[in-house]
Design a protein around this nucleic acid. Structure first.
Lengths: 211, 211, 211, 211
DNA sequence: AATGAATGAGGATTCATTCAT
DNA sequence: CATGAATGAATCCTCATTCAT
């Protein structure tokens, strides 16, 4: 593992645990195993380190979501893939995703705009799947916008509590959440193996992780 | 409004917006409209200010949840009341609840234990309702513990996006979320007016707010 | 003497002796007799301290020069007053003026523009006196612009070597320099008591110093 | 051009523009077009780089002044040569001479002594010419010591404003300044072609520059 | 010869907190 | 009650310099 990776990893861990402002440059250095001056060989500003982490995480999520939904006609399948991918990403990389979810306020205005734009683009894929599903996929829900937010928050929450050492396996977790999502959307059928398969494949391609 | 309230309010706002570590004592003073030295007439430590906010918020939530569920036999009604109350509290006091949800890491170990204990006690009421509901209320869900967490995260998420200036009214919001919850729990019926009524009443009694 | 004055004085001394970049915030604090944190009760940035010193010094010089030349018809007298005032100011406040002369490079672009504008305005008074003197005051010099610069550098140099503990008294010093200036400008007469008197008066009015 | 020369040149430029303490080792490296580590193949300490520049510049000035005055009986001619040489050196090498004039404070005590000794030796030649000129060269000035300082500051100032892109040619500039000097010293005749010629010759011999 | 990597010391500035007034 | 003044400790970051490669 390169030193740069060690720095990145230290930052992800500490930013997730103690927050950006709660993490000192000395904490980062100690966690990375180098001096605080050496830190600056591998990063720009502390804030650039943060935004880099966020961008990478969101880029990957967006790429995965696009791969999982691109060319898929069935909105139910798209939605299931999105949910599964989101849940798996948050369960596998809880630190990264918590940083993305919680530390936006620490960004400068300019960078914040970029990050929020990425997130909006990502959520747009959810909106499309939900709206399509209502039109022609058997979804029934008043206030689809509210339901979308409820879904997203529910799935993102996984990063706040999931532990690989717990009793629930990842595959089962994803299946459970897709079931919840389909129920929330009033779908008659609560399963969609195709969507789950797609998510597994994308997870392997984009994150390099196999369940 | 007393100065103490002004300080409390300033802290809630800033801790919610910029995080505990991102908020300086001078920021607090400016927002409260007094000098940073005067601040210390109305608070102990900065951390005590934080824990006070959290405790009060959680105390109220716990009190409300107890009142809403105490003596209620039907687990479906209890669950609906809990969801509605949680959603309403988070929509009405988004700043307070975001502080509770996001700034636990800033607490000292001792205080954190107390706060987490309160939260656990609160979540215990949810667990009870769900477990009872599975046993004898028509709930069907594998992994009830996961479902509980999904529910809580979904409902807490309201504080992150709800705006009173948006198109959705509070009463409708609560109804929507209780519906989502009942769907997630596989309940045959997706409504429970009694549970909503209880929540409204408790909200008035404990929070002093009427919809 | 107020603490703010002590800070200002410390800065003037150290900036003059060791340069802006050669002076640390801790040096300033020590010289002012307070802690480096307390320093920030009495100043903004270190650079603002610098620009403040420069502005005040240049403001006074400009004010003095205007008072000494305003309404004076004879360009010879004006020039003599300017030289005398400049020399006296630099002899009496060598530290301040050396800061003005040597530390412009340490200013930010925006502030530098303001300071240079003040200096240009000041030098404009010299140009006017010299040009007028050539036209109708008996001055003869090729390249009046060069002569102006030579005069200014010669007079400013006083701040680099004059010591009140040396053998030359201030009044005599001013007289000597006005003589040199008139010679440089080819003036037939090398004295101009009126100009010197004006300078003495302005020095008393604007600087509050009497020879 | 060797790398060492490039380093030297970079240092001269940056020390002159931003001061010794305002110039970082990284600035030097960038300006020289090498890495900051490589810098240390061509220099000792940053301070040694500074003192080297000063010494070389002063050595050359001293050597030139000696050649220009050695064996010249007429103090008027000696003075004119000194003025011309000084002005030309400062106009041709404004950066070097500004470093010599402005950065003495950045030297360590020991090195400073050496540099100041060189400068004193150099100024001694001026003193001698002036004093001799008073005794038997037609110079008249009260306070010859003050006049010497005035002359030196006036001539050194050239480095602060002269631009080869300006309207005044070097030869003319030197002539103008020798004229000013002779006027300041009360010399009846304001020209001395022999002194100027000597200066030109020495400039060619010692600096390798032809006007 | 050249340089990435490394760092202890120090740069300016802000921190939360206390206290005399 | 209110606050200017004060500060030790900490903030992020850059410094000049060394060294293994």
């Amino acid at each position: 593992m390169t030193t740069e990776q060690r720095v990145r990893r230290a930052a992800v861990k500490l930013f997730a645990d103690k927050g950006f402002h709660g993490t000192g440059i000395r904490d980062l250095a100690q966690e990375a195993g180098i001096s605080s001056a050496s830190l600056y060989h591998y990063m720009g500003t502390k804030e650039e380190l943060l935004s880099g982490i966020m961008r990478e995480c969101l880029d990957r999520l967006l790429l995965g979501a696009r791969r999982a939904t691109g060319g898929v006609a069935d909105p139910r399948q798209r939605l299931v893939s999105l949910v599964a991918l989101h849940v798996l990403a948050h369960a596998l990389q809880p630190a990264e995703t918590r940083v993305v979810d919680n530390e936006v306020h620490a960004l400068s205005a300019a960078t914040r705009r970029q990050i929020v734009a990425l997130r909006d683009e990502y959520e747009q894929l959810w909106s499309a799947a939900i709206d399509d599903g209502i039109r022609r996929g058997g979804f029934t829900t008043p206030e689809p916008a509210v339901t979308r937010l409820a879904l997203l928050e529910m799935c993102s929450g996984v990063a706040r509590w999931y532990s690989p050492r717990g009793p629930v396996e990842l595959d089962r977790l994803a299946g459970h959440y897709t079931g919840l999502a389909l129920r929330m959307l009033g779908s008659a059928d609560h399963e969609c193996p195709a969507g789950l398969d797609t998510a597994r494949k994308v997870l392997s391609d984009v994150w390099g992780k196999t369940l």
